[in-house]
Design a binder for these strands. Structure first.
Length: 813
RNA sequence: GCGGAUGUGGUGGAAUUGGUAGACACGCCAGACUUAGGAUCUGGUGCCUAACGGUGUGGAGGUUCGAGUCCUCUCAUCCGCACCA
């Protein structure tokens, strides 16, 4: 009978379903592995990226299950988000209906791939039960002061009609729709991720060698910790008067306190309160005020593209150490969102300050020796710096901070590039933020017993405004505290909130799902995730948020885990014709069609064979054929098997070809441990199996065939589970799947060893050597075999690498 | 500009930890079989050369008996961040 993937795959998928073969054990004492592929957004159909993601995860889950681990390998749906609302606008479908029907369809697609997911732990993040527990966490964070509401300048996407977190702005555009992001002042909810910045940064060192270094570096840079001095510039009396007595001083931050004597001006962001005051109270020339307003209306990205630009504000501050008067400017390069929106400018030792000073003819004062031309940003000895002159600048940094602290003029400070996480979204299809605005009590959290604050189903989604805001009754409620009429918050949570704790939800036994969001004993047993697999595009967003949430939930007492994902594998993209597969480019390959034509095993085999998982994978239709051929061949060779268990083989009595076949089989077995547990280079394991099969084909010993198939089917089961299970069932009653297979070392003992003979560093010939031969004998053989190349030469050095080669270094005699 | 990676045949990719470069697969070439097919099987296939041989891992140096692998410089491509004071 020839290989019929349809039949075999349907049969085993059904059997696995009936047996509930992939449910983890409730026993929390067994050795465990938690294998997690990032959960999908239910967009409608699977794409090849999904198939790759789940093929990798499934291979690992199946491998560890065979090694007697208790394996948690769950799947679920990251189900809230914009596309559901867009579908509503475009096709008039309700987001809920759209989402759940997509889930049903995609679940079927996943089933046809034969993935070994736990079925009982599946959920969608839009399930009200999930929302309920999430809202409870949010309220607890509020009570701890980790969540706060504030009105501030935010990133606004006009096309998505919502606010975006800093992490969701890519090159000044919305991460989702690519529209340019605008700045807008509005109230919103924020999570104080900066409070955890240090821990998030420090714990990255725990992940060294377990996460791709690239991801660690990206997170480190994103957090962007820098240490320096914060101090106040006091305004001159005249300036104070000009500002109507509203301001005395303002704070600046510098990482270069050693250059403080070189300050020749100070610059403020257009959004700085002092700048704003001057503009709003007509204290500047009209033209200048207009220019400053124009800059304020530009996004940070736009500003970055402009030349340096600034305007004197007609006020001055006093240098805290020299007492000199320093002019204050407004400048387009000063960021409102960092370091208080004000800087001390040292043109001699800072490139930006230099550029600006040159343009506007501001004085430049060198205070560090070194370099020929200015600006000089390197190290050196301080000059012209009062009591700190002649000190090395690295020492001076510390000395100046200390001095400023002693004098009460400033303090050593740490600053982060990381901004607090804005979680408000002005959209319908998300988890409602569970707060109520009461005229008397202010912002009040909903009572726990009233959770979840569920979404109303009867909404009109037009794309204009927030449907929750526009709903006739939903937002009207009573204050949970005083009972008076109040208004419900209509913002919903960023969808990244849901994906920040789902790894804990899976770990929680479903029997407890109603009652608790996270069960501590379950979480502490299953977490951290032993292997997490997903795309590099989440390097900052999801992976940083999930790490943050893990630490917050730990501090709320939900578990004792510090880091959610012990090991991370970032898979490469699936490309076709050198470009990412996408509908708009019309270069997609549909997983359904592929499975239909070749079966799931071929799809999985090709994907794991074509490239190492970390690399990009270039799609190749004829290589898929090759994968199919291999499976067919493997299936066909079942007729070669003569026994139903692992045979005892007298190795020494075998033919040369049979011996070689066994070597190849055991080499593959040897390789498998490293591949499944460490390198994930499935492509090399598959290649080793192909070599083994090729070698088996060159001999005809039934026992060797039996042994070879017994072992190979075990090795390949995680990759091509259906056909491997089918054959193992028929041939060996699946006895070959149990436990770890033993490597028989005698297979690797060779009758004779092939040595390469190199002369003068070049390969010249080969010799066969008895394993017991001494070094002298080997050299003698090598010289004899290499005579031709040794004529007229004098041997200068003789090197014998055991079991490998002989190298004779020569020079003309 | 800063940070991170990657450069190996026509292609995807292998190469213990400094030890035969190109495993395995695709493609291509030749042949076999044939109910003529985009099936299967056999053999070949880095480049130059009729051959001997030479040459070859982006490029240039270096260390070494020996370098894809280590060191220095350099070029190219990709990714991330980007006025962070």
């Amino acid at each position: 009978m020839s290989y019929n993937p349809k039949e075999i795959e349907a049969k085993w998928q059904q059997q696995w379903e009936e047996e509930q073969a992939f449910e983890p054990s409730d026993s929390l004492t067994q050795k465990k592995k938690y294998i997690l592929s990032m959960f999908p957004f239910p967009s409608g159909r699977l794409h090849m990226g999904h198939v790759r993601n789940y093929a990798i995860g499934d291979a690992l889950a199946r491998y560890y299950r065979k090694q007697d681990y208790n394996v948690l390998h769950p799947i679920g749906w990251d189900a809230f988000g914009m596309p559901a609302e867009n579908a509503a606008i475009k096709h008039g479908r309700h987001p809920k209906e759209w989402t759940y029907s997509n889930i049903d369809y995609m679940r079927k697609e996943l089933n046809t791939l034969g993935l070994s997911f736990s079925k009982t732990r599946e959920f969608a993040t839009c399930d009200p039960l999930y929302t309920k527990h999430e809202q409870k966490f949010i309220i607890e964070m509020f009570e701890k002061g980790l969540l706060y509401r504030e009105s501030t300048t935010v990133n606004w996407c006009e096309s998505c009609h919502t606010v975006l977190a800093n992490e969701q702005v890519e090159e000044g555009c919305c991460w989702r729709c690519d529209n340019p992001v605008e700045l807008k002042e509005m109230p919103g909810y924020y999570l104080d991720i900066i409070r955890y910045a240090d821990e998030l940064l420090e714990d990255l060192s725990q992940l060294e060698d377990k996460w791709p270094s690239q991801v660690i570096t990206m997170q480190r840079n994103w957090i962007g910790k820098s240490q320096g001095l914060a101090f106040d510039f006091e305004l001159t009396e005249e300036s104070k008067a000009k500002l109507g007595g509203k301001f005395d001083r303002y704070e600046v931050f510098t990482t270069r306190p050693d250059t403080i004597y070189g300050v020749t001006y100070s610059a403020l962001a257009p959004e700085h309160p002092i700048t704003k005051y001057l503009v709003e109270h007509n204290l500047l020339e009209d033209e200048v005020a207009q220019k400053i307003k124009a800059i304020a209306n530009m996004s940070e990205v736009e500003r970055a593209k402009q030349d340096k630009e600034g305007y004197p504000l007609g006020i001055s501050v006093i240098h805290p150490l020299t007492g000199e008067q320093i002019p204050v400017w407004a400048a387009n390069f000063v960021l409102a969102s960092y370091g208080g929106g004000a800087v001390m400018a040292v043109p001699a030792h800072d490139e930006r300050d230099f550029e600006f000073a040159t343009k506007y003819n501001l004085p430049i004062k060198r205070v560090i020796e070194g370099g020929e031309a200015l600006p000089y940003t390197g190290n050196g000895t301080l000059i012209d710096s009062g009591r700190f002159s002649c000190v090395e600048n690295e020492e001076a940094k510390i000395a100046i901070i200390n001095y400023m602290e002693e004098e009460g003029k400033g303090k050593g400070t740490t600053n982060y590039k990381l901004r607090n996480w804005g979680v408000s979204r002005q959209r319908y299809w998300g988890a409602p933020i569970p707060f109520v605005h009461c005229q008397d009590c202010g912002l009040v959290p909903e009572k726990f017993e009233n959770l979840p604050v569920a979404l109303p189903d009867d909404v009109e989604i037009t794309g204009e405004g927030n449907p929750l805001e526009n709903h006739p009754t939903w937002k009207h409620c009573n204050c949970p505290k005083c009972g008076k009429d109040a208004l419900r918050e209509t913002d919903t949570l960023d969808t990244f909130v849901q994906s920040s704790w789902y790894q804990f939800r899976y770990a929680t036994n479903p029997k407890k799902w109603e009652e608790v969001g996270i069960d501590k004993a379950d979480a502490d047993y299953w977490l951290g995730v032993d292997q997490y697999i997903g795309g590099i595009e989440h390097a900052i967003l999801h992976l940083l948020y999930a790490r943050f949430f893990t630490k917050v939930l730990r501090d709320l007492g939900y578990h004792d885990i510090d880091e959610p994902f012990q090991r991370l594998l970032t898979q490469g993209m699936v490309l076709k014709d050198g470009a990412k597969m996408s509908k708009s480019k019309g270069n997609t390959v549909d997983p359904d069609a592929l499975v239909n034509k070749y079966g799931a095993d071929t799809a999985r085999l090709f994907i794991l064979f074509a490239a190492p998982p970390q690399k990009e994978l270039e799609w190749n239709d004829s290589a898929v054929d090759g994968a199919f051929r291999f499976i067919k061949k493997l299936y066909d060779r079942k007729s070669k098997v003569t026994g139903n268990t692992l045979p005892d083989i007298d190795h020494s009595g075998l033919s040369k070809e049979s011996k070689l076949a066994r070597v190849k089989v055991y080499e593959a077995l040897q390789k498998s441990t490293e591949v499944y547990e460490k390198s994930f280079a499935f492509n090399t394991l598959i290649a080793a199996c192909m070599e083994a099969l090729n070698a088996l084909d060159k001999q005809d010993n039934g026992d060797v065939w039996t042994e070879g198939m017994y072992i190979m089917l075990n090795l390949l089961e995680p990759i091509i589970p259906h056909v491997a299970t089918e054959l193992s069932e028929t041939l060996f009653a699946r006895e070959n799947f149990g436990g770890r297979l033993e490597i028989k070392e005698e297979v690797f003992v060779q009758d004779s060893i092939l040595y390469v003979v190199m002369i003068g560093g070049k390969k010249r010939t080969e010799i066969e050597v008895d394993p017991s031969a001494t070094q002298e004998e080997i050299l003698a053989l090598a010289k004899e075999a290499g005579e031709k190349w040794l004529q007229g030469m004098q041997i200068v050095k003789e090197i014998v690498v055991p079991n490998k080669l002989v190298n004779l270094a020569v020079k003309p005699a």
